[in-house]
Lab assay of single mutants.
Amino acid sequence: LQAFIKTLTGKTFTVEMEPSDTIENLKAKIQDKEGIPPDQQRLIFAGKQLEDGRTLSDYNIQKESTLHLVL
């Protein structure tokens, strides 16, 4: 599935991932794409901060969901 990552500066980019991917995997993909170390990334979806060990499906993240990236 493709999801949108929106930063506080208003920049939006897309990442490809599977519902079974962990938040940790997602942070690694963001690092590959944007060069931001995972330990500096905080991802917010539906008002909740996402925990590394959980999966996208745990948070009911669907295709074309928008996640907010806070540094």
Rank of each mutant, 00 (worst) to 15 (best):
G35V: 02
K63M: 12
I61F: 09
K6I: 15
T14H: 07
H68N: 08
R54T: 07
Q40C: 09
D32V: 13
N25C: 10
E34W: 15
T22G: 03
L8T: 14
L26F: 03
K63Y: 10
E64K: 11
R42E: 07
L26P: 00
L1T: 06
E24F: 14
P38Y: 13
N25V: 13
T14M: 13
K48Q: 14
K48Y: 09
V70H: 10
P19G: 08
R54V: 06
A3T: 10
Q2Y: 13
D58F: 14
N60P: 04
D52E: 08
K29R: 10
Q62I: 12
D52S: 07
E16Y: 13
H68S: 07
K6A: 07
L67S: 01
T7C: 10
G53T: 09
T22D: 02
K11T: 07
R54W: 10
L50N: 01
Y59A: 03
Q40V: 10
V15L: 12
G53N: 12
L43H: 00
I44K: 05
K27G: 01
D52F: 04
T7K: 04
I36R: 02
G53I: 06
K33N: 05
Q31V: 04
E64H: 14
Y59F: 04
G35N: 06
M17R: 00
V70M: 12
Q41E: 00
R42P: 00
L8D: 13
H68C: 12
D21Q: 07
D58A: 05
V70R: 09
Q49V: 15
L1V: 12
E64W: 14
K29G: 02
Q31N: 09
N25E: 11
K48T: 12
L56A: 04
L71W: 10
K11V: 07
M17E: 00
K11P: 04
M17V: 15
V70S: 08
Q49N: 11
R42W: 09
T9A: 12
E16M: 13
V70K: 06
I23S: 01
G47F: 04
Q31Y: 15
K33P: 01
T14P: 05
H68M: 14
T9I: 06
D21Y: 05
L43N: 00
D32I: 13
G35P: 02
I44D: 04
E16R: 07
A28P: 00
D39I: 08
H68K: 05
L50E: 01
I5P: 01
A46W: 09
L69Q: 01
L67Q: 01
G35D: 05
